[in-house]
């Protein structure tokens, strides 16, 4: 079974870090977005199973993406990967429907555990 993946982060390095940490079957056809607005536009036009989402970004930030997707009833499984590790922020993203919060830089084992927990591995 294959899943479609979107990675949204304003940093090229951070996007690569996520791709490198993903198993081949998930990274092979992953698409990339450089900010929240790009991600929302892709999510409106195509169906994605998984969204990896940064929070602190220009144009439209991660909270804005979460709120937009909620309002428009677009429902990929969202995993937030962020440097903003404040407990209140972690609660906020979970309330807005994210499946899990992971701190940057993303750790391979934590990423895989989260993917397993939600049935993607």
């Amino acid at each position: 079974m294959s899943f479609s993946v979107l990675v949204c982060d304003d940093s090229n390095m951070a996007r690569k870090q996520v791709l490198r940490s993903l198993p081949e079957q998930l990274s092979a056809n992953a698409q990339l977005a450089k900010n929240g607005q790009e991600a929302v536009e892709l999510l409106r036009s195509q169906q994605f199973d998984i969204l990896f989402l940064d929070l602190t970004m220009p144009v439209l930030d991660g909270l804005g993406v979460l709120q937009t997707l909620k309002d428009e009833n677009i429902t990929p499984a969202i995993f937030v990967i962020s440097a903003d590790i404040q407990p209140e922020m972690q609660n906020k993203v979970l309330e807005l429907g994210a499946k899990a919060f992971m701190r940057k830089p993303v750790q391979l084992d934590i990423l895989n555990t989260n993917l397993k927990n939600h049935g993607f591995l």
Partner: peptide, 17 residues
């Protein structure tokens, strides 16, 4: 620049926490 920015983002996130 991107790499330095990302290292700084992570540092800033923890300082803010």
């Amino acid at each position: 620049q991107d790499c330095l920015q990302e290292i700084i983002n992570v540092a800033m996130g923890q300082a803010s926490d």
